[in-house]
Design a protein around this nucleic acid. Sequence first.
DNA 1: CAAATATATGTAATTATTACATTTTTGTAA
DNA 2: TTACAAAAATGTAATAATTACATATATTTG
Lengths: 140, 140
Amino acid sequence: MQDAHEYLIAHNIHPSQQRVAVMRYLLDHHIHPTADDIYTALAPQMPTLSKTTIYNTLKVFADAGAIQVITIDEEATRYDATLLPHAHFKCQKCGLVYDIDFPANIDPTARQPEIPKDFELTSVQIYYQGICAKCKRNQN
Amino acid sequence: MQDAHEYLIAHNIHPSQQRVAVMRYLLDHHIHPTADDIYTALAPQMPTLSKTTIYNTLKVFADAGAIQVITIDEEATRYDATLLPHAHFKCQKCGLVYDIDFPANIDPTARQPEIPKDFELTSVQIYYQGICAKCKRNQN
DNA sequence: CAAATATATGTAATTATTACATTTTTGTAA
DNA sequence: TTACAAAAATGTAATAATTACATATATTTG
Ligand SMILES: [Mn+2]
Ligand SMILES: [Mn+2]
Ligand SMILES: [Zn+2]
Ligand SMILES: [Zn+2]
């Protein structure tokens, strides 16, 4: 539970009311929400909020490196305020996107001997797909 | 350069003319094309081809496990007839999606100790982003 | 052949995302 | 504080990917 206001300042992002609200939502809800999820959650408390502002805000965050952009879902882009390296698992039944931590002292994103040396690397994403435990149980 | 017709039969997919054409395109062009790329390439030779057929066809292929679905690109879904495990690198300048082979006798997609045991895993994707060598050269 | 099934097509709808022009807010300096 | 410039937010409309669905055509099977 970090402070959204401080988090933005730490990333050189001017903390407007809307930006703080979006960042707070991301920091408090580690569910990899879509732009629409965020809008739907915040709109009731911020009647003048527009969806375009959500998109603009997320772009500012991503460009500043304050959030991760997750494209595991074909339907919509998802966003993640956790910057630490970790993987994602999307359940093909319920659609939830789970965090998958890396085993202690092994970071798979750190080893990329296969990438040509003259390529400049800026990010790594590892995406798993399958069926989550909950959905497997309710399957029979 | 495999035979598209045989490839479809091997995956229990009825080899209609359109399906063969789409699969041949995928087998011959390892560029991770979008649905639109494929349509644009085939339409001149197949005047009655519709874009919906491309989408239907790609869904049939994906459901049968005959192709991989690549979501590295926020703009559009991409498709890949290479089933062997390998990673992808998207250049943020030119947009090209490169194949990244895994180093000999190491398959990073084979190690998932971090995934809960009661999760059923069906696919793994590793996505890199950055700037490709060509674009770095033309940058100055 | 005829019926049943599998494929393909076309149109229209849906939805995520972006472009762009306008308005509002904020920071700053006279 | 007031004025002005820069930054931020908004709204509308456009774009573009994807899907829903109804129809038509082709293929398989009895
Ligand atoms: Mn995450
Ligand atoms: Mn590939
Ligand atoms: Zn699930
Ligand atoms: Zn490039």
